[in-house]
Nucleic acid binder design. Structure first.
Length: 428
RNA sequence: GUGUCCAUAGUUCAGUUUGGUUAGAACGCCAGGUUGUGGCCCUGGAGGUCGUGGGUUCAAGUCCCACUGGACACCCCA
């Protein structure tokens, strides 16, 4: 029996983990710049939280959740998205009582049992942010700006910000009727799927990928043209704020978010270098969510972004995300006498924060040199019986091959960065 | 959930059309190329139950079926 990682999950191997670390570190740095603080919530929650928060009728809740019963009989679900969990935490800990606008971010794994394809896995990772407690379009703008800034900082090219407004409970129902009426004229020609969606969720027909559907809906009425006064003003103000922040965007009246809780602003960031799953970011305003899960109505905005999709885009665009960690020096033992001593010296260097590698397999000098070369170290320290007697070690510069001898006692200071010494490093 | 294509060493792939002796290559890995020294080069070596299970056949990596897994698209979404 051979074990394999399960369908739709992936290992991040030692050779590629640095990419994740690089991206995560940049994300954190941008989040901190915007003064968002990290929130971490458990990987599972009560199933009902997601059912209520995301919407019973959504595909996510209806057919994609990893739901199971624990030994106590409670129905649990691996989180398929983060917003509901964040809102639960916000409510549970009364975060809103501590300050009027709570700004949090996260980097976490999510789980949805979908069929895997390019940019879509069953365990995938998202980063995102939520600003809870603000109804002003300045909040919407900050969230959009924040998400875009991550891509700018990472050097991602060819991404587009598309914004829309999906209205609110006051104007969306009326618009739905108008849209339905319009679509009824061409009902017979719509694709089967779109026909089914007409009653339940006619907005979705607008972003159908079926070519004929697209043709039929080219002149369909759009939500953004049927907003109530409040929503309309909000949308217009958002646009002018984005312009003042020099954030390029386009209005796409067909953006519809798949989750029930969105109101007013909905936006996406699209990468042209991804396949069919081209959304890097999805986000928007969800003023109704908190009330839905038992809190008081609290205006909020947030976004979620797929890290695998970000990495795919960066690979496609050949954005070099630094290098994997490598030791600065490799200590080689020239003979049996040097072996134990090499390990001891390595420990001393490590205690002084000098990344260092040493052979543990008792390999030949030649093999150790090969290993040092493979690891691309800058310097090799060679220690053998001859050197031991004189209290010396050989230092070989691997770039130019030049070798010098120095006293063992000077080893640490030789490799220490100027200005760094043991006293400045406290975490021992 | 539906569809299309795919599945051979650690990796990328030949070999499958026209079934037939010990399944190959490249890269990677390991060890050597005389005295204590990497990269290039040379020599040698290890490594595969040909995804799994059935079937056809004297004979199957090669043909047929099922299953599993992968890639991509639909659906949906980050």
């Amino acid at each position: 029996m051979k074990f394999k990682s399960i369908k739709g999950t992936k290992d991040v191997l030692p050779d590629e983990s640095y990419r994740w670390q690089f991206v995560e570190q940049k994300i954190r740095s941008v989040m901190h710049t915007f003064s968002y603080h990290e929130i971490r919530t458990p990987v599972f929650e009560e199933t009902a939280l997601f059912a209520r928060g995301i919407g019973e009728l959504t595909d996510i809740v209806g057919k994609e959740m990893y739901t199971f019963q624990d030994r106590g009989g409670t129905m649990l679900t691996l989180k398929p998205e983060m917003t509901a969990a964040v809102m639960r935490s916000y409510l549970q800990h009364n975060l809103g009582e501590q300050k009027p606008l709570v700004k949090v971010y996260y980097i976490a794994p999510m789980f949805r049992q979908e069929k895997p394809q390019a940019g879509r896995l069953r365990q995938f990772h998202q980063f995102g942010a939520e600003a809870i407690g603000g109804s002003s379009p300045f909040v919407d703008a900050e969230i959009i700006a924040l998400s875009a800034e991550v891509y700018r900082v990472l050097g991602v090219k060819n991404f587009q910000i598309k914004i829309n407004s999906v209205g609110c409970i006051n104007c969306r129902p009326q618009y739905k009727e108008i849209l339905k009426k319009h679509l009824q004229n061409v009902f017979k020609e719509l694709s089967e799927e779109s026909k089914q969606r007409l009653e339940q969720n006619p907005l979705r027909i607008l972003d159908s990928k079926d070519e004929n559907d697209q043709k039929l809906t080219t002149d369909a009425p759009l939500m953004k043209d049927h907003l109530c006064k409040e929503c309309s003003e909000h949308f217009i103000e958002l646009q002018s704020i984005l312009r003042s922040l020099n954030i390029e965007f386009e209005i796409d009246g067909r953006i519809v978010r798949g989750l029930d809780y969105y109101t007013k602003t909905a936006y996406e960031i699209i990468s042209k270098d991804l396949g069919a799953q081209d959304a890097l970011v999805g986000g928007g305003r969800y003023d109704l969510l908190l009330k839905e899960i038992g809190g008081k109505q609290t205006p909020s905005v947030g976004f979620a972004a797929g890290i695998e999709r970000l990495l795919l885009t960066m690979e496609k665009q050949q954005i070099f995300t630094g290098e994997n960690i490598k030791p600065k020096v490799f200590i080689v033992s020239a003979d049996e006498e040097g072996r134990g001593y090499a390990v001891e010296q390595a420990m001393i260097l490590r205690r002084n924060n000098i990344p260092c590698e040493v052979d543990l397999l008792g390999r030949s000098l030649k093999s150790q040199m090969r290993e040092a070369d493979r690891q691309k170290v800058e310097f090799v320290i060679i220690i053998g019986g001859n050197e031991l007697q004189k209290g010396l070690v050989i230092i070989k510069n691997m770039k130019n091959g030049i070798q010098t001898s120095i006293g063992v006692k000077d080893l640490v200071s030789h490799f220490q960065e100027p200005g760094e010494n043991i006293e400045t490093r406290e975490n021992r």
